[in-house]
């Protein structure tokens, strides 16, 4: 029967590249925020030594990994998850769902409510990391977008909001 055929669908290289770039930025921004922002610092202090967290896309990435190194410093640890033991694994179910999140059409809370993610790991870790991601979004995004991404746009001091933002952007780009 000629109506039957087999197809191997291709990839989505451009969307994956975009998400990979965003993940890289988010990873570096968390590293920066852990130095600059008191709340983020406190969240990481409560997490255990060597804690490693991965955010990525199913089934084959991209990923980003952030963890505490031996000196208890929060570090962006790259995009390779092989050979790492991951304490908190947040996987977006597919690249289109990741695009919805990283084009800020769906904030973390909405994406979670819509079952877009699979989270493996202890719930208290997930709670802490979601709070960190929310703070990160407020730093990195203009208010008009961040307001859609977080449930409640926080009231921050001028210094935290503007000077903090500049410092995190700067550190994310230069990487320390």
């Amino acid at each position: 029967m000629n109506e039957f055929r087999e197809v191997t669908p291709g990839g989505k290289p451009f969307k994956k590249a975009y998400v990979a770039l965003m993940l890289w930025f988010v990873g570096r921004a968390i590293q920066a925020a852990a130095k600059v922002d008191g709340d983020v610092k406190k969240e990481f202090e409560k997490l255990p030594e060597g804690f490693t967290f991965c955010l990525g896309v199913m089934p084959h990435g991209p990923y980003m990994i952030v963890g505490k190194d031996r000196k208890e410093r929060v570090k962006y640890m790259g995009w390779r998850r092989e050979g790492r033991s991951i304490d908190l694994d947040m996987k977006i179910k597919n690249i289109e769902a990741a695009i919805l999140m990283f084009t800020f059409q769906e904030g973390t809370a909405v994406a979670t409510a819509r079952d877009r993610m699979v989270v493996d790991g202890e719930v208290p870790y997930a709670c802490a990391i979601v709070r960190v991601l929310d703070i990160g979004e407020v730093y990195l995004l203009p208010k008009i977008i961040a307001r859609l991404a977080v449930k409640r746009y926080p009231v921050w001091s001028f210094g935290r909001k503007y000077i903090g933002r500049v410092r995190i952007y700067f550190r994310s780009i230069v990487g320390y």
Binding site: A109, T112, A113, V123, P124, A126, C127, V130, V150, K151, R152
Partner: peptide, 13 residues
């Protein structure tokens, strides 16, 4: 309460 995941689905922060 800060360690409980049900808050994700709550409408308000």
């Amino acid at each position: 309460a800060l360690d409980d995941g049900s808050i994700f689905y709550n409408p308000e922060e």
